[in-house]
Design a protein around this nucleic acid. Sequence first.
DNA 1: CATGAATGAGAGTTCATTCAT
DNA 2: GATGAATGAACTCTCATTCAT
Lengths: 194, 194, 194, 194
Amino acid sequence: MGEKSLQKRKYILETARRVFMEKGYKRVTMKDIVDACEISRGGLYLYFNSTADIFLEVLKLESEEADDVFSDSISEDATAADILTLFLKEQKKELLRKKDTLTQATYEFYFENDLPKKDNILKKQFDSAVKIIQMLIENGVENGEFCCEDCEGTSRNIMFVLEGLKINAQTIGITAEIVDREFEYILTALGMED
Amino acid sequence: MGEKSLQKRKYILETARRVFMEKGYKRVTMKDIVDACEISRGGLYLYFNSTADIFLEVLKLESEEADDVFSDSISEDATAADILTLFLKEQKKELLRKKDTLTQATYEFYFENDLPKKDNILKKQFDSAVKIIQMLIENGVENGEFCCEDCEGTSRNIMFVLEGLKINAQTIGITAEIVDREFEYILTALGMED
Amino acid sequence: MGEKSLQKRKYILETARRVFMEKGYKRVTMKDIVDACEISRGGLYLYFNSTADIFLEVLKLESEEADDVFSDSISEDATAADILTLFLKEQKKELLRKKDTLTQATYEFYFENDLPKKDNILKKQFDSAVKIIQMLIENGVENGEFCCEDCEGTSRNIMFVLEGLKINAQTIGITAEIVDREFEYILTALGMED
Amino acid sequence: MGEKSLQKRKYILETARRVFMEKGYKRVTMKDIVDACEISRGGLYLYFNSTADIFLEVLKLESEEADDVFSDSISEDATAADILTLFLKEQKKELLRKKDTLTQATYEFYFENDLPKKDNILKKQFDSAVKIIQMLIENGVENGEFCCEDCEGTSRNIMFVLEGLKINAQTIGITAEIVDREFEYILTALGMED
DNA sequence: CATGAATGAGAGTTCATTCAT
DNA sequence: GATGAATGAACTCTCATTCAT
């Protein structure tokens, strides 16, 4: 595949990404993507064979970018509390966006495709996030910023709460107040008061 | 609608419920339900107009039963700790079942049907569960069973963790160990050690 | 399937039969049959799932009718020579029709569907025809109508020649003269002169 | 067309020939040939406009080679019986190969393309084969090897039997025994016993 | 009330063919 | 000459929905 093809491939993935954000995963058809990309029916099949195929690639791109974002925020010389606060702020933004998020599409995708146990991007992201938060907390404890007896447990707890907020955001809906309240509870447990 | 019709209606809902448990929400077609019920295509339309229609009714039945179950466990004269433990045990069972649950179908349904804000069964269930747990914890605190500074916050935290576990169970998969670990973390925070 | 459905099924098969005679097997699409039957796309699928499905049924009907024809000509009290002559006359008619025959479609069908060894209608027809001709010849020999040393061999030879004529009729084309010449050769070998 | 082009053209035809042997005629697409030749889509169109175009050329090459083979076997100084036996042996090999033969593809091609009456390669091959066999038999009769009253009729009969065997090989399937039996019948009629 | 045959819109997919490079 | 990306027509198949009986 030449240079040009690679660009088109990327263009399709980016366009498809927007479609998935709008409509979720299951409701998206090859035709939807064809229309959004303004290419021909057959043209799309030169690059991808199914919506599953496309979505998986979108997810890969997404997770690469996610990694970048993470490392960005960490590279700065900030206190653990700063970083955690920043992280939660980002999460809040994401949570309140609801649409314009791949969250719903991702869930639908994993519902449908009975877990590719190995190579499960979602799981990797979850586990890696737990570890990063754990490190962060441990760091904060050493610096006397946080007080916490079970850092690993706490970081897992935080991640599950985030997951809970995420799914509720997509189903019953959440407000900024709800998010704030949960985050405050977490920070309070860490001995932070704002 | 006559007595007979009501029975048929109920029969359809019960059968459809099983279909939704097996296949989720989106993959289920009117034909699937017709086949499972062994009735005629047209017959089904006499009672329901769409799978959305049917699923909503299934959900209503479900929530009624859920209330019953709750009141059952509470009616017994047990300590708060007992009841909470029992409740978590039930939740664990449900979490590990994965299939044979309406969880996935419910999520899919709410993804699709842009939140009927009012009359949102899922929200009611969540809020009511938070309240019950809160009462339970407050009770336990009074009895000296638990120690907890922010009972409402804690009960919300518990429910969000449960939601997080639920969605993870359906997407990346969870094990009994993972559930146990989270529940222990929660109980430890309440001052319970096992 | 009700009485009416059975009639429609038969109607489809008869119509499809004409389509296969016109276009062969491979060139026929479900749409062709839908159009010829003047029914809806989905309607056809209520009865048959593929052109292969339909063609197989057409073939079954055909072979049943073929059996009938055979028994008809035999039931009359005619000499072996009469019957053989009649049989060859029928074959000639069939051979010269070219179109308006399922021959080509049948060949194409068997090319495509790597022989259902068991239940192979074509094979059964061939073998049964060999036997009938053999009986006929043996009968003729007893009556002094024919002279033949290897009745089985001769009847097989006749059938293979017929097959050869059939395929040539569909590929390079044959004329009445060619058929006559072959049939005369066969009859001469049997000691018949006309 | 330059020297180089001619070579490429030949390369394509040889490669396509293998494809047709594997898949028959109708199932072969331009893409199949492009892939097998490992050339570009557009490249193929510089030489041929359709699979029909290509197959016709393959057939021409084939028939030229066929002539060569024939003359080879005749050039040797062997008795008529030897040559006939050799010829039948070759035919048997060909018949039992089934796949790895252009037979099926050729039939399919002639089914589809309503006989180019003039310039019909298949017909020429058939007629020429009849003549050669006739010469052979006449030769054998003169030498006292064969006894035969109607040499032309017999040779035609042989060719039609061969055609019959060929089409049966491709449809209902044949075995070595069946071929042997037919050939013995033919040879016995010629007064040869083995 | 109940049936199930029938409809037609629409999704997925493949391929011959073209054309800018 | 040669490439291969792009097009769009055509085919298969599925379903929600209707309607005569």
